[in-house]
Design a protein around this nucleic acid. Structure first.
Length: 527
DNA sequence: ATAGGGTTAG
């Protein structure tokens, strides 16, 4: 290439090719096409592929040439990059005509190419027609099948491979674990996943970080938090990805406390894995679920310091976190910092938004219970069980001085529980004197009135409220979040208290925010 | 001989 010659060489008139010509142009000067040997044309095709000039490369290929394996590899990659199936098919045909049909290396590349070009049938065809199948060829098809959600097909092929006594490698295992998740019916394939887990241990991959992380993720996606954490704890070395996978497991399986706790552990861990944007998204989700505003703000600060604040998933998670924590002003401010293109994708995100699953069923059961339709309540509960959704216990959180305290209805572990109960009894008495009657028709079961009163006064949000009254300074807003929908009794009690204790109280339940002030709630009692 | 893999917004 003239452009790369030293200046003095260019100045010497050694030949008659004009200096302004972009290249030596041997194509037009060569006397006949037969002079065009492998070593002559391959570098040109390779160069064109590397430049991304697929058109030119294919034009050279269409001449009577015999490219090498490496040239074909670059051509295939180029077709993938240009997203051109028709060119891919041409290269494929050309390669077969030139005797590379037995080449497992190129078969792997072709399977990957067809997979990328959404042509799973062609990927499969390449596999079927390749007689010399290295583990790379098998794995390429496993990956392709899994990516399009044909997990069961991949698993079937895996059994076939096992029957042929072809040994798996670490890639096979990761693809098979993903295949279990990528399949249509999740229930039956959890067992399959456990089976592969056993294969992995049997073949000594228990300390392989990629395989183990995939295993954590598989259990996470099946909702088996315990198994995921057992695998994670047993890992001898951990890195950002494995930490993130486990944190995501907690965050997506309604275990936000554990997610935050593990994040803390990660920051203290001696392996030098810093949280990245992926980690932060999951931690922000946990904060959103807990309505933990102060924690969220700290995380926002960390995100800014680490320069992760321009990554779209992170920004989206921040917007949602602030919104779910009831700070719409900050949510809006972060939202405004997005560029236009991001706003569009964020809108599509929000439109399909809606921490809802088991909550809907519980809500429905609540409504039936309120209408005293106890048969319907039973029906919904059965449905809930049949769908494998766990009935979530009523549970509330409150954040006081940057610490989050959680309450469930029967909470003997809280050190202040006696004090809280005493306060509640005192409040109840005071309220009764002022004409309060417990709203007990929210209780789902057919019980005596007094028993029902006991139940609603044991509701976790009342415990959280009492805790807030004791521990929050006067003038400070008491912020509570509630896993389920606020019950009517809690709602009226909170209104009551906001007036005679003169406190501002913000409650986020599964549906909306309730802002209590001076005996009135922002929802206007319609919720 | 070569090649490929794990975590997140939706």
């Amino acid at each position: 290439m003239l452009a790369f010659q030293p200046p003095q060489a260019i100045q010497q008139p050694r030949h008659f090719i004009p200096l302004h010509s972009p290249k030596p142009n041997r194509v037009t000067l060569r006397p006949s096409i037969t002079n065009f040997t492998k070593t002559d044309n391959n570098p040109s095709i390779q160069l064109l592929c590397k430049r991304g000039d697929l058109r030119q490369a294919l034009q050279l290929l269409s001449h009577e040439t015999s490219p090498t394996q490496h040239t074909y590899e670059l051509l295939i990659l180029s077709c993938t990059q240009k997203n051109s199936l028709s060119d891919g098919l041409n290269v494929h045909k050309h390669l077969l005509d030139n005797g590379f049909d037995e080449d497992p290396f190129l078969a792997t590349k072709l399977i990957n190419m067809y997979s990328e070009l959404d042509s799973i049938d062609l990927a499969r065809k390449v596999f079927d027609e390749t007689r010399n199948r290295t583990i790379y060829v098998w794995n390429a098809l496993f990956r392709a099948l899994t990516l399009v959600g044909l997990g069961q097909e991949a698993l079937k092929l895996y059994s076939h491979m096992n029957r042929l006594k072809i040994p798996s490698d670490r890639f096979t295992y990761t693809y098979m674990l993903k295949a279990c998740v990528a399949a249509e019916s999740l229930v039956s394939l959890l067992d399959k996943g456990k089976e592969i887990h056993a294969h992995i241990l049997r073949h000594g991959y228990e300390s392989h970080i990629h395989v183990m992380t995939t295993l954590v993720d598989m259990y996470a996606r099946f909702g088996c938090v315990r198994y995921a954490s057992l695998v994670f704890d047993a890992m001898s070395t951990k890195n950002v990805v494995s930490w993130s996978a486990m944190i995501a497991c907690y965050a997506r399986n309604e275990r936000p406390f554990e997610a935050l706790e593990l994040f803390r552990e990660m920051m203290l861990a001696s392996d030098d894995s810093f949280p990245n944007s992926v980690t932060m998204v999951s931690v922000l989700q946990a904060c959103a679920a807990l309505a933990a505003l102060e924690q969220g703000k700290l995380l926002h600060g960390y995100i800014l310091r680490r320069g992760l604040d321009s990554i779209l998933p992170v920004v989206s998670a921040l917007v949602i976190m602030y919104a779910r924590c009831g700070n719409l002003e900050l949510s809006h401010r972060v939202f405004d910092q997005m560029d236009k293109r991001d706003v569009v994708s964020w809108n599509s995100l929000i439109s399909s938004y809606g921490p809802m699953n088991a909550g809907n069923y519980v809500l429905l059961a609540d409504i039936y219970g309120g209408a005293k339709m106890f048969d319907e309540v039973k029906r919904v509960k059965k449905l809930l069980e049949a769908r494998g959704l766990q009935k979530v216990p009523g549970c509330s959180w409150i954040e006081v001085k940057r610490k989050i305290y959680s309450f469930v209805s029967v909470d003997e572990l809280n050190p202040q529980i006696e004090q809280l109960r005493a306060l509640l009894v005192k409040l109840l008495k005071e309220m009764k004197d002022k004409g309060y009657v417990a709203e007990t028709n929210v209780v789902l079961y057919d019980l005596e009135a007094e028993e029902k009163e006991k139940i609603v006064w044991g509701h976790s949000e009342k415990l959280a409220l009492a805790f807030g009254l004791i521990n929050c300074k006067n003038g400070e807003i008491i912020r509570i979040s509630n896993k389920l929908r606020m019950c009517e009794d809690c709602h009226s009690v909170t209104k009551f208290i906001s007036k005679f204790a003169d406190r501002e109280i913000l409650v986020r339940d599964v549906n909306r925010f309730h802002h209590f002030r001076d005996g009135v709630c922002s929802c206007g009692d319609y919720y």
